[in-house]
Design a protein around this nucleic acid. Structure first.
Lengths: 144, 144
DNA sequence: ATAATTAAAGATATTTTTGTCTTTAATTAT
DNA sequence: ATAATTAAAGACAAAAATATCTTTAATTAT
């Protein structure tokens, strides 16, 4: 579904959000350890998120990654997915055809439409912070 | 969503089914041309489908690929997807976690469950031949 | 100022996916 | 039998994704 980079990006974001709820910043090393991902590669992904202003970062001692208040309250899953994997997954055609649309649909267009719409809707309405809160209340776990 | 190999596999299958409905076999060259895909690479994909008994093939003059009657009436999208991409897309976890399930769900498990179930259901109930028939009636096109 | 800490950036390596080319084997028609 | 046609198989190449390593820049604390 998502690329590895995107999976790490989502997992890292949820973990960072969880820490941000406590007012803590968290570093690359701790993040990679927490979500069980390759550190340097995950760092690249974090750079993408930082560049796009989805998360914040600070260098130096006591630095690290975090969501500021605005970011924490507004970051949706779709924001992360879009800057890492793009929108093709849920906006494009199921068969990767360029010119497939409602009027000139590909053979699987109607079969896929509802699912892609639902996926899109889910990504566009799910706040990362809510996933982090769900995590906090013990309903779900990140590292596995 | 799907790998290129899988996209070619699906498109090729729909095209082959369309020809099989007319009682025709069709060769690699014609298939690749019809679905606008790299010939040799597509041929590899067809070999996978043939090996798994999803489509049939015959060598020599007037040979080519085709669905026999049983194959034509029973081949679902999920059969093609499973032998090429595996089932991870719609059976696995949205974040690629090994041990994510209903009891010990990952942070996005509930967000993704319905969508993956719908995707799975769609792939498991859509016959390739029906897509080919839809194609025949002019509602959709393959090559783009 | 200096050292320590941390993210950013760049270079490189590995693996996987995608794609091509060549040879082989089967089948058919002559 | 021979030639033509076609899929199968194998070797190889290119591109993309994934992963690692090294250097640089910013920040903090001493």
């Amino acid at each position: 579904m998502f690329s590895k980079a995107c999976e790490y990006g989502i997992k890292a974001s949820i973990f960072i959000a969880e820490q941000s709820l406590k007012g803590d910043k968290v570093g690359q090393v701790a993040i990679a350890k927490a979500i069980n991902s390759p550190e340097a590669f995950t760092a690249k992904t974090l750079q993408i998120l930082t560049k796009h202003g989805i998360i914040s970062s600070e260098r130096g001692p006591h630095g690290g990654f975090f969501f500021n208040e605005l970011q924490l309250s507004s970051t949706l899953l779709c924001h992360i997915v879009e800057v890492i994997d793009g929108t093709n997954l849920y906006k494009g055609c199921g068969l990767g055809l360029e010119r497939c649309n409602e009027d000139v649909p590909c053979p699987v267009h109607h079969q896929f439409k509802q699912i892609r719409d639902d996926l899109r809707n889910m990504l566009e309405t799910t706040l990362v912070v809510d996933l982090a809160i769900g995590l906090k209340s013990g309903l779900a776990f990140l590292k596995r």
